[in-house]
Design a binder for these strands. Structure first.
Length: 559
RNA sequence: GGGCCUGUAGCCUAGCCUGGAUAGGGCACCAGCCUUCUAUCUCCAUAGAGAAAGUGAGCUGGGGGUCGGGGGUUCAAAUCCCCCCAGGCCCGCCA
C-alpha cells in the first residue's frame, strides 16, 4: 500500500485542491517525532493555523493513520506503525525481487560505452558503463522492454595512427598482453614518435586514404588489430558485468548518411552553400547551422549519426532512445535532434541525450597525449587488489579462490558506487585515496550491511508466527517506513534518471538497518517478537538486494 | 564574443524540477562504544576450553555553514526571476 497516495486521496476529499498538487505539497517532517507526513496549510486560506485546525476536524482517520496533529501551519500525520509493519513486511517478503517493480511497457534503446578501437577503455568509460548499465537496469525494473546497444568507433585517423606504429615497429608480433592494451601501446608510441618526426602525420593520413580505398593489406591489418582490441574490450565488459545486445560499427555505415542529406536537399529542407556543401538551417531552434555533407560529397560525423538514428529506428521501432554520452557532446546532440526534427522524423522527439560530466584527476583533465589517462582495467585491478588485502587480513583461512572472488566483487562495488552516488551532470575528480575507500558512503558499506542481514538469517531462520505489533522501537519503525518508500523512490528516479537518488536511498537504508542492528537483539526467547524482527531483517535484505541490483552491484551473502 | 552546465563546513556530496518548520550525509578532526590482539579472569590440569546473539567495511556523541555575491518576487527562497563573480564543457566541412 502506498501510504502517501492514500493520504492524497484523503486530503483531496477534505479540501478543494487538486490531488496532483496535494501530492507535491505533502512532505516529510524534519523530525521523526513530529510525524511521518506533513501537510502545509498555507494555501487553504489567509490564516493557515486556523485552516489546519479546521482541516483536522474535517478528516476522518483511516486505519493506517493513528493520529493527526496541528503544528502551527502544518498538519502532521502519524502512521499507525503496527498496522503498516505487517502490510509492508508481508508485501516485500511476498514480492521478493519484484518489490518496487512497475508496469511501464515502453521499448527503449540504451546506447552507451562508445569506445574507440585504438586504445583501452579509460576512467571516463567506467563512469559511462556504470551509468549506462544502471539506467538499463532501472528501465527494465520499471517493466520496459530495454535493449542495450554499443557504438564502436572503429575507423578514422586515430585508428590508422596505431596501425602505422605497428607497421613500423610491431615486427608483426602478436599481442603478449590484453589486446586493447597491446594496440594502445602503439598509439602511444605513435604520439611519441610524432614529436621527433612530424612527417608521420602525413603517413597516417595516407594510410587512412588507403583504408578508404579498400586497400587489401591495409584492411587486413585493420581487421587484425581491431579484433585484438575488441577481444580486450569483451574481457572488460564481462568483468564489469555488462553485455550489449547489438554493436553498431562505424566502419559499416559511415558513408551511408549521404542519402539522408541528399534527400533533405531535394525536399527543400536543407540548403546548399557556395562551396556546394549541404547545410541544415537551425535558426528555428536558436542554434548555429550545421553542415551535413561536405562540398566534395563526403560525409562527416553528424551524417553518420543521422543515418544511425534512422537505422536504429528501423531495427527496433523504439519508443525512446537514450544516448549515454559525455557532456562534451551536448551541442552535437542538440544539433542532431534538431536536424532529425527538421526532417520530420517521427522519433525525433523520442531521442534523449543522457549527459554526464567528465572524470578528472586531481592534477586536472586526463589527456592521452600527455599520458595521464587512467585505464579502466588498471583501476579495476587496483580496487580488487586493495579489497584483497582487506579480505585476506580478515579471513586468512579462506581459500585463495574465495579471497579473489570476494575481492573482485568488493572492488567493483567500490568503483561503481563511487561513480553512481553523485549527480551525473557534475564533473567528478577521481581522487584515488578517497575513491578507493571502503568506509563511509561506499558500495562495500552497503554490501556489508546486506551480508550482515544474511548472516542473521542463516543463524536463525524464521519459523512460525510473527507478532508485528511488537515492533515498537523507533529504529524498527523508521526502518519499516524507509522500506515502504522504495517503490515511490524508484518511480521518482525513473522520471529523470537521477541514479544518485538510488545510491542515497541505499545509504540511508543501510544506516537505518545498522542502527537497528545495534539497538535491537533479534535472536531471543520471545518467539513472536523474534519472528517479526527476522521478517524485518529479511525485508531489509531484500530491498538492499533490489537496490544494489539497480546499480549493477552484487549483493553478497558473505564478505 | 555566444550557448550549456556547476558553485552548499577544511575536503566531497544530498536537497533545486514541484518554494514551506532547526539545510541531510560522508571524509578528516575530537570524545566514546565495540571488535581484534595482548593482558586479565573462570573452568580445567599440563594441554586445552570459556569470558553472553548475528561479520567492527559497524554504532553513538561533538565542534565546524555568508547554501558563490547582490538585487527582486513571496506570508515564506539553497530552491523561482534578474544582474554579477568564479570554474568546467562546447561553439570544425574533427570525431
Amino acid at each position: 500500500m502506498d501510504f502517501k497516495q492514500e493520504l492524497v486521496i484523503l486530503l483531496s476529499k477534505a479540501t478543494s485542491l487538486h490531488s496532483e498538487d496535494i501530492a507535491i505539497m505533502i512532505s516529510l517532517p524534519p523530525d521523526q517525532k513530529m510525524g511521518d507526513y506533513a501537510f502545509p496549510c498555507f494555501k487553504l486560506g489567509k490564516n493557515p493555523k486556523e485552516e489546519a485546525e479546521k482541516l483536522k476536524k474535517k478528516i476522518v482517520l483511516p486505519s493506517f493513520i493513528s493520529k493527526v496533529d496541528v503544528a502551527g501551519p502544518y498538519l502532521n500525520f502519524y502512521l499507525n506503525k503496527p498496522e503498516i509493519a505487517k502490510n509492508v513486511l508481508e508485501t516485500i517478503l511476498k514480492s521478493k525481487e519484484n518489490y518496487g517493480q512497475q508496469k511501464e511497457k515502453r521499448k527503449i534503446l540504451v546506447e552507451y560505452c562508445g569506445p574507440n578501437t585504438n586504445k583501452p577503455l579509460h576512467l571516463g568509460h567506467v563512469r559511462n558503463m556504470a551509468l549506462g548499465n544502471a539506467v538499463y537496469n532501472l528501465l527494465q525494473f520499471l517493466g520496459n522492454d530495454v535493449h542495450p546497444v554499443n557504438i564502436i568507433n572503429d575507423r578514422g585517423i586515430h585508428i590508422c595512427q596505431s596501425m602505422l606504429a605497428y607497421q613500423k615497429w610491431g615486427n608483426n608480433k602478436k599481442p603478449d598482453k590484453k589486446g586493447d592494451h597491446f594496440v594502445g601501446d602503439f598509439y602511444v608510441l605513435f604520439a611519441k614518435a610524432l614529436k621527433e618526426n612530424p612527417a608521420l602525420k602525413e603517413e597516417a593520413q595516407q594510410l587512412l586514404q588507403q583504408w578508404e580505398n579498400k586497400d587489401k593489406p591495409t584492411h587486413e591489418l585493420w581487421k587484425k588489430m581491431n579484433g585484438w582490441v575488441l577481444n580486450g574490450f569483451a574481457e572488460t565488459y564481462k568483468r564489469f558485468g555488462i553485455a550489449f545486445e547489438k554493436e553498431y560499427f562505424e566502419s559499416q555505415y559511415y558513408e551511408k548518411g549521404k542519402d539522408i542529406a541528399l534527400d533533405g536537399l531535394k525536399k527543400g529542407i536543407f540548403e546548399k552553400d557556395e562551396t556546394n556543401a549541404i547545410i541544415a538551417k537551425l535558426d528555428k531552434f536558436k542554434i548555429e547551422d550545421k553542415v551535413v555533407l561536405r562540398g566534395d560529397g563526403t560525409s562527416i560525423y553528424i551524417t553518420q549519426d543521422l543515418y544511425l538514428a534512422e537505422q536504429r529506428f528501423q531495427d527496433y521501432r523504439f519508443d525512446k532512445l537514450l544516448y549515454v554520452v559525455a557532456s562534451e557532446q551536448q551541442f552535437h546532440f542538440k544539433q542532431l535532434f534538431a536536424i532529425l526534427e527538421l526532417l520530420g522524423k517521427p522519433y525525433a522527439k523520442s531521442l534523449y541525450h543522457l549527459s554526464y560530466g567528465l572524470v578528472n584527476l586531481p592534477t586536472g583533465r586526463m589527456k592521452s597525449r600527455e599520458g595521464t589517462v587512467v585505464d579502466a582495467d588498471d583501476i579495476l585491478d587496483e580496487m580488487s587488489a586493495l579489497a584483497e588485502k582487506e579480505v585476506r587480513s580478515r579471513y586468512p583461512t579462506l581459500s585463495e579462490k574465495e579471497i579473489k572472488r570476494r575481492a573482485e566483487f568488493i572492488g567493483l562495488a567500490a568503483i561503481k558506487f563511487f561513480m553512481l552516488k553523485v549527480d551525473p551532470v557534475k564533473d567528478i575528480v577521481f581522487n584515488p585515496e578517497e575513491s578507493l575507500s571502503f568506509e563511509g558512503e561506499t558500495g562495500p558499506y552497503i554490501q556489508y550491511t546486506h551480508a550482515r542481514a544474511c548472516s542473521i538469517l542463516r543463524k536463525a531462520p524464521k519459523k512460525g508466527k510473527s507478532n508485528y505489533l511488537a515492533l515498537k522501537e523507533p529504529s524498527e519503525q523508521g526502518l519499516i517506513l524507509l522500506l515502504s518508500r522504495f517503490p515511490a523512490m524508484v518511480q521518482e528516479v525513473a522520471a529523470q534518471f537521477k541514479i544518485q537518488v538510488v545510491s542515497h536511498y541505499l545509504l540511508t537504508l543501510a544506516q537505518s538497518f545498522n542502527e537497528f542492528y545495534h539497538s535491537c537483539p533479534v535472536i531471543s526467547d520471545e518467539k513472536e517478537l523474534m519472528n517479526a524482527r527476522l521478517a524485518l531483517v529479511d525485508a531489509t535484505r531484500q530491498v538492499l538486494a533490489n537496490g544494489l541490483g539497480l546499480l549493477g552491484i552484487h549483493p553478497p551473502e558473505e564478505m
